[in-house]
Design a protein around this nucleic acid. Structure first.
Length: 434
RNA sequence: UCCUCGGUAGCUCAAUGGUGGAGCAUCCGGCUGUUAACCGGAGGGUUGCAGGUUCGAGUCCUGCCCGGGGAGCCA
């Protein structure tokens, strides 16, 4: 086949031209002397038509119609506009070649159980909805990089194998590390980003993190990706400004570049178009008041669950910051509020439409003695944190950062129910296959 | 970990304690514009596993296994 190989996505640019498409047979219909093949090539879906006549005999067409779904194929033909074709364009076939015949394909164009689809995730990726979600994920990640790079942040990769907990309380995946005892899969790159911030000023990482919590909700995975910017000389308010600019930038980018994907997912765009800075800011105490007014039995010192987060987010048409939480329910490294040391200079960013917390950030403790006291209060091993304490001895400064959950962000923007669909191969407490 | 719902053909589901079925998929045949195409025919079963009750268990009981939904915890 000598015609140029083009993507289905680019069909409108090749109207009237003879082209080659390489892909897979997604669906087919035939009626004796005409065959309709739906081909996908990773960039889109297109209908190809073959007819008895100039290019195909009746028996050739019959063989074409017998090729099993998901077989890999190479097609050649002329791109033409036709309102009867899904998508408006179709390929009038002149050549048809099977690269490899597929066996019976288990996923059909109908309802399947969640269990079945997850068991076949390696094939399910080919279906339109997962395909659209993961294209949005791609654009979200590219948008995060773009914004941070354009604003002076340097990408610094954190280690995945770590010697100790970054946050003492959460459960860690443990493994044997040669003769050096136990090592753990990282549950955050933050502490290493703090080291990097004193070297590069403004830094970030985008890396997988692992939590061995037996959480079983639509907002949890045991392996998930987190973006963690950290900036020297940023206070907690600089930190929130960075967060809102980053989130609104990425949402804007998705609205520009993923219209087709959002349409496939039937995402209501109205709430997304309202995501503009500044985001509302409320204190933890104000959040408690809102919850009480809505009939929740919220008391000072309680943390918020999914229902509480949803109730608070309903009061606003864009993501909302909740700041100044009680220190007792937050991590050891957060800077106490100088005006009320029961509180810390932190913020959670709650996404709209019930998608919950997508960011947790704070100003970090920069004083050596205060940090040492906090480590001891939390019964954390000082030896393992010696390097972290060191950062407070050699030119310490106020600094802040945050962690953004990639899958929660993608799930929110995509409007999907469960974050396991926002990652190619989800890891959950009862699932490690495929 | 707790609460709750479920497991029957490749898939989605039926079947009053009394001969396990249907639609889709697959295979065979038909059809010149299909849109989850349509029409006709065929094959396809250790009812999650192990016990128990019963003349008789997919169905009732006990235990286990595997999942779904939710809670707590968190991003």
């Amino acid at each position: 086949m000598k015609a140029p190989w083009v993507s289905i996505e680019s069909f409108p640019l090749h109207l009237g031209e003879e082209v080659v498409v390489k892909g897979w047979l997604a669906n087919k219909r035939s009626s004796g002397k005409v065959a309709f093949l739906i081909v996908r090539d990773g960039t889109g879906f297109a209908q190809a038509t073959g007819a008895v006549g100039e290019f195909f005999t009746r028996s050739e067409l019959k063989e074409m119609a017998k090729v099993p779904l998901q077989s890999s194929i190479i097609l050649q033909g002329v791109v033409r506009k036709d309102d009867r074709a899904p998508g408006g364009y179709e390929l009038a076939l002149s050549h048809f070649q099977v690269v490899a015949e597929a066996e019976d394909y288990p996923i059909q164009n109908k309802e399947h159980s969640v269990e079945f689809l997850l068991e076949n995730r390696h094939l399910w990726l080919r279906s339109q909805k997962p395909h659209a979600v993961l294209r949005i994920r791609n654009q979200v990640i590219m948008g995060l990089h773009q914004f941070l790079q354009e604003n002076g942040f340097t990408l610094i990769d954190p280690p995945i194998l770590t010697p100790a907990a970054c946050e003492g309380t959460t459960t860690l995946f443990e493994l044997d590390y040669f003769d050096l005892g136990k090592a753990y899969l990282s549950q955050s790159g933050q502490l290493y980003m703090e080291a990097a911030a004193s070297a590069f000023g403004k830094v970030y990482c985008l890396a997988p993190t692992f939590r061995a919590e037996k959480s079983k909700t639509r907002r949890h995975l045991t392996e998930f990706w987190m973006l963690e910017p950290e900036a020297a000389f940023f206070d907690w308010q600089d930190n929130m400004e960075l967060q809102e600019q980053l989130v609104s930038f990425v949402v804007g980018r998705i609205l520009d570049s993923c219209q087709e994907e959002l349409a496939t997912l039937e995402r209501d765009l109205t709430p997304l178009t309202k995501i503009k800075t500044p985001f509302p800011r409320i204190s933890y105490e104000q959040a408690i008041e809102i919850l009480k007014a809505k009939g929740f039995s919220a008391e000072w010192g309680d943390d918020f669950g999914g229902d509480e987060e949803t109730a608070i987010s309903e009061e606003f048409d864009r993501p909302v910051f909740i700041h100044h939480y009680p220190a007792q329910i937050k991590a050891f490294y957060m800077q106490p509020d100088p005006d009320d040391t029961r509180l810390v200079l932190n913020d959670d960013l709650i996404a709209p439409e019930g998608y919950g917390e997508i960011i947790g950030g704070s100003q970090r403790i920069h004083d050596y003695q205060l940090l040492k006291n906090k480590l001891e209060e939390n019964n954390l091993p000082l030896e393992a944190f010696q390097w972290y304490l060191d950062l407070r001895k050699f030119g310490t400064c106020p600094h802040s950062g945050f962690g953004l959950g990639i899958e929660r962000m993608v799930a929110w923007i995509s409007g999907i129910h469960h974050i396991r669909e926002a990652i190619p191969f989800p890891r959950q407490i009862y699932r490690i296959y495929p």
